[in-house]
Design a protein around this nucleic acid. Structure first.
Length: 419
RNA sequence: GUGGGCGUAGCUCAACCGGCAGAGCGCUGGAUUGUGGUUCCAGUGGUUGGGGGUUCAAGUCCCCUCGCCCACCCCA
């Protein structure tokens, strides 16, 4: 009988890396709150119907990547493959419009897609996302990007590429889809199997093909730009102009088409050159029709989702190590003569906000010192016969190699000064 | 879902044409009974991912299977 293993595509996050995750999430909470975002937590399990109506039945996510199952009551449920739809569902369900618009929400949590695992792609992955409800103007698109860039800047990222495009509003989009279909239909023989299928289901998705042969066919294809409504065009031009005015570097990429049906107008992604084929560490855009599609009021919205796993994979190493918290001081009951005093001293330090680990085991002071070194303790506090009789503590500084005897009451202050 | 690469000690890896499974790091102990790390010495390390087959003999060759990695695909 072999030992149970973790499920394919799902992984354990272990220390010390978990400290980096916690720090990234704390940074997100802090930066997002600077912009007035508040946290929302939605269930991991949703009705399957939610994703079919929002993400879209023709998308690969809904078509073949969802963890869908039937519960004991016969309901079709799905582990969320993304969180924009659940957040929009919650917005409608709780009439959050009544909280006053615009409403800014963020979330952090696991998502599930049944895909072949690869670098930066797992079946359980984690997203940090944000959504803004109720602001139709291009300024909120720009502000959202600014917030993202501030967040990434605080994590130490430098050479990231912002790619930007517009897919137009619903009307522009369906007009363009029709014209693209008419252009490509006679050339279907030159398209691959996937693209031929998309010709029916989702012609815009053909635009971001990587096949050189298909790229050549697309060179002469009608352009989305030609079908944009004046309103959509102005919206996008405003964004591009404001980004330029603010010195925010970006590339307009007409081939950028997000895979989820609910996007309208602005779409964007930020990529890292350090990742392989899965180079986008975040993506987002506007989805002005989603809330209404889910039975809510006509409320425009936009948002993004950061792939936390990918983000951490390419986090600049110097910053990753910065996030690991300071090692605790180690209190050693020398020779096992004073375990209760060691425990009490450690507890006193914690009361002063200092991290401390007590080594209470009998004997083997050497082993205790070794463990202190391994956990990175700089200060070791020794309590033995000598100290007990005089009410003192020996404080050893691993860095200087020196140690001194001091009164117990002084220890916390001494460590605090040197923190 | 498709194609390719790789699975050997806790970790990183070696082992010729099929011929006694190894090294470094780690871990444990000692040198040093109340002083870590550094140094020296000793020790601990394995159903070679799993199953089947070929062979006198399999880590090595063949088949199946599981896992990891890469690309396609998809997307964050």
């Amino acid at each position: 009988m072999s030992a149970p293993r973790s499920v394919k595509g799902m992984r354990d996050l272990l220390p010390p890396e978990t400290a980096v995750w916690a720090a990234v999430e704390a940074t997100a909470r802090r930066v997002f709150s600077l912009y007035g975002f508040e946290e929302i937590r939605t269930p991991i399990v949703e009705e399957t119907e939610l994703f079919m109506r929002s993400v879209g039945e023709s998308t690969d996510i809904v078509g073949k990547e969802m963890y869908t199952f039937e519960d004991k009551g016969g309901r079709s449920l799905t582990l969320r493959p993304e969180s924009t739809a659940p957040v929009a569902r919650a917005f409608v369900e709780h009439n959050l419009r009544e909280q006053g618009l615009p409403l800014r929400l963020f979330y952090i949590g696991p998502q599930f897609r049944y895909e072949r695992p690869q670098r930066g792609r797992y079946r359980q992955f984690h997203q940090i996302g944000a959504e803004v409800f109720g602001d139709p103007g291009p300024l909120s698109d720009v502000e959202l990007l600014q917030m993202l860039l501030r967040f990434l800047d605080e994590l130490g990222f430098e050479d990231l590429v912002v790619r930007l495009n517009t897919v137009g509003d619903r009307a522009s989009r369906s007009a363009y889809a029709q014209s693209l279909r008419e252009f490509l239909a006679p050339r279907a023989a030159e398209l691959g199997e996937d693209s031929r299928r998309r010709l029916e289901t989702n012609p815009l998705r053909i635009l971001d093909t990587k096949l050189p042969r298909e790229r050549r066919v697309l060179e002469d294809a009608p352009r989305l730009e030609e079908h944009l409504s004046d309103e959509s065009r102005e919206h996008f031009e405003m964004i591009v102009r404001m980004l330029a005015e603010r010195g925010i570097e970006h590339q307009v990429d007409p081939g950028l088409v997000r895979g989820l049906d609910y996007y309208t107008r602005t779409v964007f992604e930020i990529a890292s050159a350090e990742l392989g084929a899965q180079d986008a560490i975040l993506g987002g855009g506007r989805y002005d029709g989603l809330v209404a599609d889910l039975g809510g009021p006509e409320v425009p919205a936009l948002g993004f989702a950061i792939g936390e796993d990918r983000l951490i994979e390419v986090l600049p190493a110097s910053n990753a190590s910065r996030f690991v918290p300071a090692a605790p001081a180690t209190v050693i009951a020398v020779g096992g003569v004073a375990p209760e005093d060691a425990l009490r001293l450690a507890e006193e330090l914690r009361g002063s906000g200092l991290a401390a680990v007590a080594e209470l085991g009998a004997g083997a002071m050497k082993g205790a010192l070794k463990r202190a070194g391994r956990r990175g303790s700089r200060y070791v506090l020794l309590l033995g016969d000598d100290e007990l009789s005089s009410g003192a503590v020996t404080v050893k500084d691993f860095e200087s190699g020196r140690q001194e005897l001091m009164d117990r009451e002084r220890v916390a202050g001494y460590l605090e000064e040197r923190r």
